[in-house]
Every structure is written in C-alpha cells, then in structure tokens.
C-alpha cells in the first residue's frame, strides 16, 4: 500500500503479491507472502496441510480478505480501488465482477446438485454475464466435449463419478472465459484411477497458454506442467523456482523433509 501507482509496471504480471498477511483471530495463516505469476505461467503451490496455500489461493479471488500487504490481479488491487492515496473498499457488485474473470476449481467440486451438467456450465454466462441461452448452451457443449464428457450434458452431478464431476467443474469455470484459473487441490478428493483424466484436462489447458495457479500434492504434475513450483510452510514461502530444481535439489531442510514424505 506504499506504491502510489500500482498500475505501473504490472503489464505482464497476472498476479502480484507483496507481504500478504492473513489471520483468523490470533491465528496467523499468512505471514507475508511475496509471489508473482506472469501471464501464461503455470505455478504449482505445494506444502504441508495448514501451510496457508489454500488460504492464499482464496485471497486471490477475494473469497478471503487480506489483512495486510498488497495483492493485485492483472494490475488491479484485489478488493480495493486506489484513488489518490486512499484505498476504497470495492462494493459487492464490483467484487463479483472481478471474481467473474477468475475461474476457480475446488477440492470438493462444488457443482450445483439441483441443476443438470449443462445448466451448471451455463449458470455463470447466463445469470452473471446475461449472455443469451442458446449460444451459451452451444458453448457449454463444446466445453464438455473438450473435457471428454460430451455425452453427460443432461446428467445430474451425483450421477457422475468424482473425476467426471471435477471435469464438469473445470468446464463451468472455463465458460466464463477466465484470464486466470485457480485450482484448490483439484485431485485430492478423487480415487487414484480418476486423477489422470482431470490432470490431462489441466495439462491441455496449460498447453493452450492459460495462466494457472494450482495447489496440489501431485508432484509429477508439478514437475511436468508447472513453470514454477512454490513451497509454502507455516504461512511463508520457503522456496520457489524451477520445478525440477525445487523438487529434485531443494535448498531448504523443510522442503527436503516435506518432499521426503510425499515423493
């Protein structure tokens, strides 16, 4: 909050975090996170549970409010508008508009169970963007085809397996044409044999140049698809860099002991 012109020099960065703090009461979950994500970059966030990686992800689309530091997406502060030297908190409507540009995929899928797969995917475009129903449905069918579920258009979420549900959830997020995709442990709730299909979809997405932040325990995916791996522990970034280097030759003891447990 010290930089008087936050728009300057952020042209190529999709996400920029400086000293981000977050606390629940006395429990400090994020203790000053610095991180940048360039356009088209795939950043994988790894770390033990409780390290704050999911919380940080949720701060990016303002599902959580940060208590300190500065967080900007695409050159604009999250949750605030800077006017002169003052920060004005955004109205609900403005927050919603910002969120609509960022896709999010949850560990527990969170599809709307009372709506068909097609309606799940068109819900954002039709209700939020006020797009016409016909073209939105065509687009939804294309997206379903892309995630390999063209035949599930009229199914309801609980008629699908976990892996299928997660791919629908990805299609639902993509229907909003997001400039950034956030994945919060997208494969952690899946049976092992279903993980591959979801990762394939994410790999394709990365190949198409989507900017992605992925909280994951899939080290293979992080190494293969990630441009950067960030290891978080205890609310701080311990180590970050090229996936192969971080995962095979970690510089910190904490990274080493974590990787020894998961690899």
């Amino acid at each position: 909050m010290t930089d008087p012109s936050p728009g300057a020099g952020r042209g190529r960065l999709m996400v920029e975090a400086r000293g981000v703090h977050k606390a629940y009461g006395r429990l400090e979950v994020l203790k000053g996170i610095d991180m940048t994500v360039a356009r088209g970059e795939v950043l994988c966030l790894i770390g033990p549970s409780g390290s704050g990686k999911s919380t940080f992800l949720r701060c990016i689309n303002h599902l959580e409010k940060i208590d300190g530091g500065e967080l900007a997406v695409d050159g604009e502060l999250v949750g605030y508008r800077q006017v002169g030297h003052r920060l004005h908190e955004l109205k609900d409507k403005e927050v919603c508009a910002k969120r609509a540009e960022i896709g999010m995929v949850f560990q527990r899928f969170n599809l709307f169970p009372h709506m068909s797969v097609l309606d799940n995917i068109t819900s954002g475009p039709v209700w939020v963007r006020k797009a016409a129903t016909g073209p939105s449905r065509d687009r939804a069918r294309d997206l379903l085809d892309r995630v390999g579920l063209a035949d599930k258009v009229d199914s309801y979420p609980n008629q699908l397996s976990g892996g299928q549900q997660q791919r629908v959830a990805i299609a639902r997020a993509l229907a909003m044409d997001p400039k950034l995709m956030l994945f919060d442990e997208p494969t952690s709730a899946l049976d092992p044999e279903l993980v591959g299909d979801v990762l394939d979809v994410m790999r394709d997405l990365a190949g198409e140049g989507m900017t992605m932040i992925v909280v994951t325990h899939e080290m293979g995916f992080a190494r293969e698809v990630g441009d950067t791996v960030v290891f978080m522990d205890g609310g701080v970034v311990v180590e970050q860099g090229d996936p192969t280097r971080v995962l095979t030759d970690p510089q910190h003891d904490r990274t080493r002991s974590f990787l020894a447990k998961v690899l």
């Binding site: 609900d92 508009a97 910002k98 540009e101 999010m104 599809l111 819900s123 954002g124």
Partner: peptide, 10 residues
C-alpha cells in the same frame, strides 16, 4: 463459494 467464484451476487 462456487457461486461466488463464478461472480454471482449474494
């Protein structure tokens, strides 16, 4: 949360 992440209002 899912609804919010799609930009839906309360």
């Amino acid at each position: 949360e899912a609804a919010a992440s799609l930009g839906m209002s309360k």
